[in-house]
Amino acid sequence: MSNLFSQLDGIGAKALEQIEGASDLATLELVRVSVLGKKGALSEVLKGLGSASAEDRPKIGAAANDWKRKIEEALEKKKGGLEDQALETRLASERIDISLPSRGLHKGALHPITQTTRRIIQTLGRLGFDIATGPEVETEFLNFEAVNIPKDHPARDMQDTFFMGPGVVLRTHTSAIQMRAMRNQKWPVRILCPGAVYRCDSDATHSPMFHQIEGLWVDKKVSMSDLVGVLEFFAKEMFGSSTKIRLRPSFFPFVEPGAEVDVSWGKDRWLEVLGAGMVHPRLFEMAGYPAGEAQGFAFGMGIERIAMLLHGIDDLRLMYQGDVRFLKQF
């Protein structure tokens, strides 16, 4: 009888010793099978249980279970240790040089003209302006006569024009859009008109095509002080809260009074960035508005000029070359 007990103790002690000595998970599994498997040492011992007395059987059974539990615990513990160790080894072997170059995604960017246009629209949009557009090939009528620039008038010299055919020009300013909008809509009109415009002029600071955006606000009672307020808001939002504006009298046929608008730049510079004024009554007449009922202001600026100021671009021609060295910077 005591034989079975001592057999159990022997198996148990040996198993614990083997578990302790196992150097990897495979060895540990062999140990488990050799002790706890169907044909393992412990099972073999328990097969002799039938010859034990009824009184001893539960005791032997209990002792066997006790060993089984101990061995399982030891296996579990050892397994955890070995697994941790294996992971450590793997981690060490999988180390990469994180300083190697990345796989890289293609980065795109919007043209500074687009970005600046959006910035202007978003800024002025907060005051309630909507957007209006029109064609680049425009009727001479809308481009000139309708905005108070008659044929054979010296004001035409202000805008050297590309002609396409009888009565057809490449629009020289976005003012043509204003007239389209007013002919389609009664006041209140609050629109921004962005777009490409064309003039026969090409040198380091002039491109034969460039972009403008014009603002138009027409309602029953809109005054020149409203124009000043809107431009002041715009300048501060675009160029910084300490920006000041300065209006100087000037002449554009489609406004009266007309103004050139400078913004303060740095400590002691003024930059001319806008033309503006009160909408000339002739335009309301051309739009079909009853005389004396609407009043409004308009302003316009070159988008490239603003973009060059915002980004510090010093060569206008870069805008139109599709050069990735340029485009990727914005």
């Binding site: 959006r118 629209i121 978003q122 949009g125 907060r126 005051l127 309630g128 302006f129 909507d130 957007i131 209006a132 557009t133 209140p188 609050r190 606000w217 309602d219 029953k220 809109v222 005054s223 020149m224 002080s225 409203d226 000043v228 307020g229 809107v230 002041e232 808001f233 300065r246 209006l247 100087r248 009298p249 103004a259």
Partner: peptide, 24 residues
């Protein structure tokens, strides 16, 4: 021109959304 005050004009109609979503 510097003697002309600065004011913000009154809105007499509902502005369209600013995020361009209604514009052409």
């Amino acid at each position: 021109y510097d003697k002309i005050p600065a004011t913000i004009p009154a809105l007499t109609s509902t502005p369209k959304p600013q995020n361009l979503s209604q514009s052409p």
